[in-house]
Amino acid sequence: MIESLVPTIERVRHDLKMRDVTVVRINHVSPGFASITFHGEALADFTSLSFDDHVKFMFNDANGEQVRRDYTPRRFDRDARELDIEFALHGHGGAAEWARNATVGQSAIIGGPRGSMILPLQMDWHLLIGDDSALPAVTRRLEELPAAARVQAVLLVDTPDRRTFATQAHADIHWVASEDELLQVLTDLPLQPGAGLAWGGGEAALMARVRELLIAKGMPRQAAKVSAYWKRGVADHHERLD
């Protein structure tokens, strides 16, 4: 096993609260993603302490039935009472359809987050793995890492939605085009010496294989934090695999 210190991870619980919000801005980040800014006085006590947080986004569909989906809080401005959430537009689910048709003034409900898993910034190295559903979390993490941080990212994202990240860290980004390529890059990628931390987010079966691969390479289980953001054939799925 690679000699590595186990990171200290802080878990914080938050009071669950449902907040009424309204769309105030829509920005198309790439062909497949829109960043939608929500405003509401109910956001005055909103808290998101980790890039890994997720909120429950709720809206009524055309049949008047409530749809609930998990999303990453991408950016929060307490003074402005504004919260940004990035939506994938290329899906066939109700949330993607809602985002494609969203207009300024439209209302929704945001619940949570119920808790935060705060991963330390001061590590010898960081490894981020994900598909396009993890892009908002990866983007937020790269923004918050300090200038001295060393980070590698392996990301399964279609070419039109690949983006330039704003980060102070020393970042090495590996874009891949298939699950097999992602797993091969991870297999070939040597783990760096020292205290490292790996985080992954994406499709359930792929992330289970990612976690198995990391542990087989010698990564301590406590240092490999992997979440299933979605699952093929399941409408609303979010599961932590660590």
Rank of each mutant, 00 (worst) to 15 (best):
H174C: 04
M1I: 02
L241N: 06
V151R: 04
F76K: 05
R162T: 05
H92F: 08
T72M: 08
E97C: 02
S35V: 01
L83Q: 06
S35L: 07
L128M: 15
W125Q: 06
A216R: 06
R140Q: 12
H238Y: 15
V29M: 10
L135H: 07
E10F: 01
I173N: 05
R240Y: 14
V6L: 05
Q184M: 12
G93R: 08
P146T: 12
L191S: 01
H39D: 03
P73D: 08
L189N: 05
R209K: 15
L189P: 05
I2Q: 05
G91Q: 09
V234G: 03
G202W: 06
L189Y: 03
L16I: 12
G196Y: 02
F165D: 04
I173C: 05
G40C: 00
S116E: 11
I9A: 02
R78I: 07
P31G: 00
M117N: 10
A205G: 07
V210K: 04
L135A: 09
H170L: 07
R162G: 08
A235W: 01
S116K: 12
V151W: 04
W175R: 02
V21R: 01
L121V: 03
D132E: 15
A102V: 11
V6G: 00
G91M: 05
A96D: 09
P120R: 05
M18K: 15
A34D: 00
A88Y: 13
